[in-house]
Design a binder for these strands. Structure first.
Lengths: 241, 241
DNA sequence: TGCTCATCGATTGTCAACAATCAATCACAG
DNA sequence: CTGTGATTGATTGTTGACAATCGATGAGCA
């Protein structure tokens, strides 16, 4: 894990240390600098971030809430491990949430919506064409997240954010394991086309198909890479939020 | 998980102060002992619960995440205020979540499911008949929550829990303001009947109608009781999570 | 060998004091 | 009287030290 040279005396990092640490730690987890299953201790992280255990503790608590960390009282805290069931749940939930978001947005689609969707699609295409896998993961999340933003539904948005982290974690692990990640560009082309199309029912079908493809691919990866890790379920069973 | 018989007499969960405080504080908020909009300070609560500010702070952070508290850095923390938009969002989200839950459960409905649903309906009816409004709120939440439990979908369950608190807060405030709360018993009778019925589509319609009734009732209450409270939006605009 | 139990190191949980920030107040000049 | 800037009290943010708990280790013994 790389320490960014000393600790810059840049005041006003974020209104509070906690928010700053949350971003840094989450980023480190999603970038794979701390691999799934690895233990993270408050003391070492506090030293790395140059703060005391207090704010760091609260930051970890938030990441536990986001489902990126798992903790066992008085014992230890680990980066969450991949689970096939979790991935199934995430994708089935995504189908549900994204259809709901489109139902909210459908009648309010305007030129700005069209532009926003197309620009994000273009960015995603660019990242795929240049084989920048890490950036393409982010671009894909930006594309899908756009719908939730436009919906203006705060609870829906927060729910999306609560699963986005784990989704990104799965994708990032998938990328590191398989070298190439390869999201289906034509899949997103038809996704965007239908999102701008005439029929909401067609879009519903598109979302289900879109998620089925992505979910299946991720499941296959997990089944192959997770064989023989039985202690994980044991850890999760005893874990508390 | 079964408790090992060895020394399993440690009755109190007492695992951590934080969990205990979260329950106590949330209960106090939902019971109205701290009214919406009231300020809660860490020091006074710490003294009240007989603990230091550390664990209490983490407990508050969790309730902030649950949407029961709102905090402004370095300034203060308040019990969240009712907002018409929030209620709209909660109810629209509930329609979505509960339909999803029934889609998951529908094919797996068995005798245990039927029994669980009927017993909770009976409990709700009993509370309504005895005019125990506070208990009927809890009973209604138990009835609806049962669906999410049975679904076995952890993310869906957590999402439901993340809005349940605010829903309960609204209902409790409604009850205190109007004296009588009066959930529609026949509404729940048809709800349960359709939940045990043959057609999933009918159940979808039932859920939409059920939420429309409850949502409209709560909205009317908020519009009448919240007139002239404009500074609230100001507070929420500056609040951070 | 195989089992029990005390011990030890590691990690999280808790505490009380100190620092930073904000909002209200008040003196004061125009 | 009105607006403005310093002051002050209140509240959250941060810190380092101390306590409680857990899992592993190894000694002791049948």
């Amino acid at each position: 894990m790389n320490e960014q040279g000393g600790r810059g005396f840049i005041r006003i990092p974020k209104a509070t240390f906690r928010a700053h640490i949350v971003d840094g730690l989450r980023s480190a987890i999603l970038k794979g600098e701390i691999s799934p299953g690895a233990q993270v201790t408050e003391s070492s992280l506090a030293e790395q971030f140059g703060v005391s255990r207090g704010p760091l503790r609260e930051a970890m608590r938030q990441l536990i809430d986001e489902g990126l960390l798992v903790t066992i009282p008085y014992t230890g805290t680990h980066v969450v491990e991949l689970s096939v069931d979790d991935v199934r749940e995430i994708y089935s939930m995504r189908v549900n949430l994204e259809i709901f978001a489109f139902e909210l947005v459908w009648e309010k689609r305007d030129e700005a919506f069209r532009q926003g969707l197309l620009s994000r699609q273009a960015e995603l295409t660019r990242c795929i064409d240049s084989s920048d896998d890490v950036a393409s993961i982010d671009a894909e999340l930006q594309l899908h997240g756009f719908i939730y933003e436009v919906s203006g539904h705060k609870i829906l948005q927060k729910t999306w954010e609560s699963i986005r982290g784990r989704l990104q974690l799965y994708w990032a692990a998938h990328h590191r394991a398989h070298g190439i990640r390869g999201p289906r560009r034509d899949g997103h082309d038809s996704y965007v086309a239908n999102a701008l199309g005439e029929s909401l029912d067609v879009m519903r079908t598109e979302i289900r198909a879109h998620m089925a493809r992505g979910g299946q691919q991720t499941e296959d990866f997990l089944l192959s890479s997770n064989a023989g890790k039985l202690e994980r379920s044991d850890v999760q069973a005893r874990a508390t939020r």
